[in-house]
């Protein structure tokens, strides 16, 4: 009897969960479906739209008309560049704070976090003017710098929480065995730190890819990543459903795939280790 009720219960939960899951995912699904339709079919009523023939023409047109590849490449350069730069600065810092903690390490960490709390509009005007005067507007270099700085606190925090979990006893044991500092870092610590660094990198790429304040304010065309490129579809003359769908699908696909791999790390990274 009990067995039967749990089975019924499981079936009910299954239906409810799938229904809600599909409703939440529906806008993405709809965008993907629409990207494989012709412009004329995309604005038809939902059922007529679905039954119309499938085509890849929108994907071809997006590239032909707007140099999609350039904006995609800009997104790759900005997110990868800013992530690597942030790791380069953050790994030594997090390392030192985790393994050689001082009296003020906690204050230092909290202060770093507090820089993340500053709203971007608070510094919009001077950043814009500085970029203008230095000729950095619409340049990838300038934006890589800004994206590095805005994500640096999260990167340091995430790395710190991972490094903290590496047990100190292992270091002591390797020292007892006569390992030098160099071999200690190379053979003991590095292998244990790599998974943490990899997940930090993954989360930061996602955040940088989707960043939509500075990328919108500081780029126009040459250095514009996908966030800015997609925003250009908001003007009425740029309104083509099938092409917007194709451009959107290509813009979100890489991150959806990366994101699904990083679900677990996401929680830790975005809550600064407060929820694991």
């Amino acid at each position: 009897m009990a067995r039967k009720t749990t089975q019924t219960r499981k079936a009910v939960v299954t239906i409810a969960a799938w229904l809600i899951g599909i409703v939440i995912f529906f806008p993405i699904l709809w965008t993907i479906l629409m990207s494989f339709k012709s412009e004329g079919d995309a604005i038809k009523a939902p059922l007529a739209m679905l039954s119309s023939p499938w085509t890849l023409e929108s994907y071809g047109e997006v590239q032909a008309r707007s140099n999609y590849a350039l904006h995609f490449w800009n997104s790759v350069v900005l997110s990868l560049g800013s992530t690597l730069l942030a790791l380069l600065i953050a790994i030594p810092a997090a390392w030192a704070m985790a393994f050689v903690p001082g009296k003020r390490t906690k204050d230092l960490l909290m202060w770093m976090l507090s820089t993340k709390m500053m709203p971007a509009v608070g510094v919009l005007v001077p950043m814009y003017l500085m970029f203008r005067d230095l000729g950095l507007l619409d340049s990838r270099i300038g934006l890589v710098g800004v994206l590095t700085l805005i994500n640096l606190p999260i990167v340091i925090w995430m790395l710190y929480t991972y490094f903290k979990e590496i047990p100190g006893e292992i270091l002591e044991a390797s020292r007892m065995d006569g390992a030098s500092l160099r071999s200690e870092i190379l053979y003991v610590l590095t292998p244990m730190a790599v998974p943490g660094i990899a997940s930090t990198m993954l989360l930061n790429i996602i955040l940088a890819w989707n960043e939509a304040f500075w990328t919108l304010q500081l780029t126009t065309s040459k250095a514009a990543p996908l966030t800015q490129f997609i925003a250009s579809y908001s003007s009425p003359e740029g309104l083509f459903y099938a092409k917007l769908s194709a451009a959107s699908t290509m813009a979100i696909a890489p991150i959806l795939i990366l994101g699904w791999f990083s679900q677990k790390q996401l929680v830790r990274g975005l809550t600064f280790g407060a929820v694991k």
Partner: peptide, 27 residues
């Protein structure tokens, strides 16, 4: 709760978070 296809539903529910703001707003 336990149900069939937990992994897939989880993925469906999380997906919107990875959509860049300009895309979600325009869609």
């Amino acid at each position: 709760q336990p149900f069939w296809g937990q992994g897939i539903v989880r993925v469906l529910v999380i997906a919107p978070f990875f959509v860049m703001p300009t895309v979600s707003a325009l869609v």
